[in-house]
Amino acid sequence: MNHDNVFLWEERIPGGCHWSGVLRRGVTLRLADVTGNANGAILFFNQEEKLERYNMADTLKAQHTFRLTKGHACFSDMGRIFCCITADTVGWHDTVCGLSDSKLIQQKYGIARYQEHRNQMYRSGMDGMLIELGKWGLGMRDIVANINLFSKVTANNVGELTFHRNHSKAGGYVDLSFEIDTLVILSAAPHPLDTNTTYQPGAVHLTAFTTPITIASECKQIAENLRGLHNTHRFYHPCGGAL
């Protein structure tokens, strides 16, 4: 991180654990893969009106993409932009595979409950998301298609999906620069297609800092993103008009 950026806070999320918090507009959140092969399942909600949330379909079709990386934006279901990806050393983030649930975790890895294993228990992405959503008055009906940061999944000509293990290396990171005051929900549980036969989810390190002015235009190369940013700026304008 550039030392000219104003550091705000940092936190490490152990593999399999979960986190939530509000990122204000004008703040960038850097998510880093600590040891490699992490998965950061993430969802976004408008902090002022939580019925507005991340929309996978609009995000992909507006930018004609299957993956997310630097220069892409994350759209809400109201045509606004939660955040822009302003830096990315990983290069590919999965958008379509969703979350692991407790049944899948049990089938792949067995059972390790808190009563016996304490913090080494096996957690699913779904359970972690539901715990964090509950802290903000949200629940199962608020779980929509999420982004899986650090994970790469490709599709062949007949639609079969392939998970690319070892895609994300230790120290890889992605920067999300927020345009809306956003409630962020994060789970570091394994990707549902992870081919590892042992439950070994990687830790995710979070660092928040003020968004540098020099990267404000990173996602403006796509026409739909310009319209999305215009809608976003109008949301904060006192008269609801153009800035």
Rank of each mutant, 00 (worst) to 15 (best):
residue 172 G to V: 12
residue 172 G to L: 00
residue 172 G to K: 12
residue 172 G to N: 15
residue 172 G to D: 15
residue 172 G to F: 10
residue 173 Y to M: 09
residue 173 Y to D: 13
residue 174 V to R: 01
residue 174 V to E: 07
residue 174 V to L: 09
residue 175 D to L: 11
residue 175 D to F: 13
residue 175 D to I: 10
residue 176 L to T: 01
residue 176 L to G: 00
residue 176 L to H: 04
residue 176 L to K: 05
residue 176 L to W: 15
residue 177 S to L: 09
residue 178 F to P: 05
residue 178 F to G: 04
residue 178 F to T: 02
residue 179 E to C: 14
residue 180 I to M: 15
residue 180 I to H: 04
residue 180 I to T: 11
residue 180 I to F: 06
residue 180 I to S: 08
residue 180 I to W: 04
residue 181 D to S: 00
residue 181 D to M: 00
residue 181 D to H: 08
residue 181 D to E: 06
residue 181 D to F: 00
residue 182 T to R: 04
residue 182 T to Y: 01
residue 182 T to G: 01
residue 182 T to S: 13
residue 183 L to Q: 05
residue 183 L to C: 06
residue 184 V to D: 08
residue 184 V to A: 05
residue 185 I to L: 07
residue 185 I to S: 00
residue 185 I to D: 06
residue 186 L to H: 02
residue 186 L to C: 02
residue 187 S to C: 12
residue 187 S to F: 07
residue 188 A to N: 04
residue 188 A to E: 03
residue 190 P to G: 10
residue 190 P to N: 11
residue 190 P to M: 11
residue 191 H to R: 11
residue 192 P to A: 09
residue 192 P to R: 11
residue 193 L to V: 09
residue 193 L to E: 03
residue 193 L to M: 15
residue 194 D to T: 04
residue 194 D to L: 03
residue 194 D to K: 04
residue 194 D to E: 15
residue 195 T to C: 07
residue 195 T to K: 14
residue 195 T to R: 13
residue 195 T to H: 02
residue 196 N to R: 13
residue 196 N to E: 10
residue 197 T to A: 13
residue 197 T to L: 07
residue 197 T to N: 09
residue 197 T to E: 00
residue 198 T to E: 02
residue 198 T to F: 02
residue 198 T to V: 13
residue 199 Y to L: 03
residue 199 Y to S: 02
residue 199 Y to A: 05
residue 199 Y to G: 08
residue 200 Q to T: 15
residue 200 Q to C: 11
residue 200 Q to F: 06
residue 200 Q to A: 14
residue 201 P to G: 07
residue 201 P to L: 08
residue 201 P to Q: 08
residue 201 P to S: 03
residue 202 G to L: 11
residue 203 A to M: 10
residue 203 A to P: 05
residue 204 V to D: 08
residue 205 H to M: 14
residue 206 L to D: 08
residue 207 T to D: 00
residue 207 T to I: 12
residue 208 A to H: 01
residue 208 A to N: 01
residue 208 A to I: 02
residue 208 A to P: 04
residue 209 F to K: 01
residue 209 F to Y: 15
residue 209 F to E: 12
residue 210 T to H: 07
residue 210 T to P: 00
residue 210 T to V: 13
residue 210 T to C: 05
residue 210 T to E: 14
residue 211 T to L: 12
residue 211 T to Y: 05
residue 212 P to L: 10
residue 212 P to K: 05
residue 212 P to T: 08
residue 212 P to Q: 05
residue 213 I to V: 12
residue 213 I to L: 14
residue 213 I to G: 07
residue 214 T to N: 09
residue 214 T to E: 13
residue 214 T to M: 09
residue 215 I to F: 00
residue 215 I to Q: 11
residue 215 I to T: 11
residue 215 I to H: 06
